[in-house]
């Protein structure tokens, strides 16, 4: 029960790996080279799935957090944590791949257009979320606080986007053409992109489940440690003085 990968997950893993391999073949062999951008346009097939996953992650973290506040069940908190942590990883990769793609195409690593601004702020927000989880005192209170932050963060996304968008249009002379991105995709390109999104989403889901299981082990370990503490400290006060001290014993077993 502890440890070994269940058959279902093994099948899932194999299918995902196969799908990812197939996607790589589609990206580099099957999909045609884009006319204007050249080979570098193949970055699209990894950048867009990463962006899509980040968006989904924000949504899942917020939903799981709402569920946690409503039900108080720890599994929802674990879902939120697993999704947020993997989401920050994917978000980081999205920002990095985006920057590397932007350099040859836009000739800058970064531009403050609405999408990029929103993404950067979101990234900081979810890093802060993970920091809060690390710095908060252990216990349910920490989970509740984290849930509130996740929900507020998700609410903030459209506001940030709207404000950043308006702010950009307020400075049209600084706009650097993300229009380059919007040139139409051929049908092979669209299919490749779609398959890639499916493959990466499957891989991401596998990672989330992996992380979720680690979280459960962490919780289990915490409980076991408490049991062991109780076991070791309680009898320690017991011998010899037991007759006189019996009333004062449980104090040793903090929380």
């Amino acid at each position: 029960m502890v440890g070994a990968v269940g058959p279902k997950r093994a099948v899932w893993l194999v299918i995902t790996a196969g799908l990812v391999l197939f996607t790589m073949w589609m990206i580099f062999e099957w999909a045609p080279t884009e006319r204007n951008l050249g080979e570098i346009q193949r970055a699209l097939y990894i950048h867009v799935p990463l962006a899509w996953i980040s968006m989904v992650a924000v949504f899942i973290v917020a939903s799981a957090s709402v569920m946690y506040l409503i039900t108080g069940k720890r599994k929802w908190d674990s879902v939120a944590l697993a999704t947020a942590e993997t989401g920050v990883l994917v978000g980081t990769l999205m920002l990095v791949t985006g920057a590397i793609w932007a350099k040859p195409i836009w000739n800058v690593w970064w531009t403050w257009d609405a999408k990029l601004t929103t993404t950067a702020i979101l990234w900081f927000l979810y890093v802060a979320y993970l920091m809060l989880r690390a710095f908060a005192p252990p216990g349910n209170q920490a989970y509740r606080m984290a849930a509130v932050v996740a929900i507020l963060g998700a609410i903030d996304v459209p506001l940030v986007y709207y404000a950043a968008d308006l702010w950009r249009t307020a400075h049209p002379e600084l706009l650097i053409g993300p229009a380059a991105e919007s040139s139409g995709l051929s049908s092979e390109m669209s299919i490749t992109l779609l398959v890639s999104v499916v493959a990466f989403t499957s891989l991401y889901a596998y990672m989330v489940v992996d992380r979720y299981r680690v979280r459960q082990s962490e919780n289990e370990l915490g409980e076991l440690k408490r049991d062991v503490r109780n076991l070791l400290y309680r009898p320690a006060a017991e011998p010899a003085t037991a007759a006189t001290m019996r009333g004062a014993v449980p104090a040793a077993s903090g929380d």
Binding site: I121, L122, F124, L125, V127, A128, M131, L132, F135, V149, L152, G153, D156, L159, V160, Y162, A163, A164
Partner: peptide, 14 residues
């Protein structure tokens, strides 16, 4: 003293 600005400033961006 670190947690407050790190949480508060991104949310306050709009």
């Amino acid at each position: 003293e670190i947690m407050l600005p790190v949480l508060f400033l991104p949310i306050a961006v709009p």
